[in-house]
């Protein structure tokens, strides 16, 4: 049983890429195309609960060199909602644990006849290296702290659904900017769509060099709070830090946790987002995470829609001519 999407929507550009590696290299039009496609899938599948047959006969492999539950599940579901088969391939730790390079691993999977490889790896750039070495489509599902394009896209989609447009909004990314792939993907995507981006956190986690890219730097959450339309509260990536960049979790929470008290200083219609998993009490208190301004669970649902859109754009029958769901 499948639902066909029949109504064609006008889309601004053709999708020509074979891979989705980052948002840094995408154009505003390409990002909007993915978001429009995601919206349209969402609408026509009753919030991604129904199946389509658009990718029947295609196989999507999840190649996760780093642990993940949510992203992997989300990609698997997205692929299946489109009628594709999925196969999971996980390899903990180094790909060399069995003496095989990660490129050989991927080549082996490709040789089994998959059409797309969704890859997560602890090392920045690994998806790009795979894309250079194998022919099937590569989707970056997080390469260390570098980028996590579908997370950036789902965050932006969530904001766009709530506000209609990204242009002119002030969005603060709060927390561990240094080690956050979500931060990087959000920065590029939001800027391209016209948002003013603030990165906020302790000096040890927020490089002044972001200013070179037109990003505002803030070390005080309280100072920027009143002018933010969106607060995206990033998780402290303890596992990626070489040396703890602040004296204690208690001190961090004191300075940067989004609390009920701080909410009083925020705009009335502020959106509270978190890419998760959230450390309750560290980045955000439960009353805020579960409060009326929170769109955290909408983000999760949008994750499915965005991943469906990405897989369809990459694997859809004829990329060159068919640029919209039918």
């Amino acid at each position: 049983m499948s639902v066909q999407i029949s109504e064609a929507e006008t889309v601004p550009v053709a999708w020509t890429r074979n891979d989705l590696l980052d948002l840094e290299s995408l154009t505003a039009e390409e990002i909007s195309l993915i978001l429009d496609t995601a919206d349209s899938f969402k609408e026509r599948t009753d919030n991604c609960t129904k199946k389509l047959a658009l990718l029947q006969g295609k196989t999507v492999a999840n190649l996760f060199f780093e642990n993940s539950t949510r992203t992997r599940t989300s990609f698997s579901l997205a692929a299946r909602r489109l009628g594709a088969d999925t196969v999971d391939f996980s390899s903990s730790g180094s790909s060399l644990s069995k003496g095989e390079t990660f490129i050989d691993t991927a080549k082996n999977i490709e040789a089994m006849g998959v059409d797309a490889v969704v890859v997560r790896h602890r090392t920045p750039g690994t998806p790009r290296l795979l894309a250079q070495n194998i022919g099937c489509s590569i989707v970056n599902a997080g390469d260390g702290p570098h980028e996590h394009p579908t997370q950036g896209l789902l965050d932006i989609l969530t904001i766009r659904q709530q506000r209609g447009s990204i242009d002119g909004l002030t969005v603060a990314l709060v927390g561990d900017i240094a080690h956050s792939r979500t931060a990087r993907s959000n920065i590029w995507g939001l800027q391209k769509l016209g948002a003013h981006v603030i990165v906020c956190g302790p000096t040890t986690l927020v490089s002044q060099r972001w200013e070179e890219f037109g990003v505002e730097i803030a070390n005080s959450l309280d100072e920027i709070l009143p002018r933010c339309d969106v607060l995206n509260l990033l998780r402290i990536q303890f596992e990626r830090q070489q040396m703890r960049p602040f004296p204690s979790v208690r001190e961090y929470a004191l300075l940067y946790a989004m609390t009920g008290q701080r909410m009083k200083a925020a705009k009335d219609d502020v959106l509270i987002m978190a890419p998760g998993p959230i450390n309750r009490g560290v980045e955000v208190t439960p009353e805020v995470a579960d409060g009326p301004h929170s769109v955290i669970l909408e983000q999760v649902n949008n994750g499915l829609a965005v991943r469906m859109a990405v897989l369809w754009l990459l694997l859809g029958a004829d990329r060159a001519t068919e640029t919209k769901p039918r």
């Binding site: 840094e24 920045p124 260390g144 702290p145 570098h146 980028e147 240094a178 080690h179 060099r209």
Partner: peptide, 18 residues
Amino acid sequence: TRGGVMHEGSVSMVLALP
């Protein structure tokens, strides 16, 4: 330079390489 892969600067920041 612990764990470092490349020169620390704007490029390493963007690429998130140590």
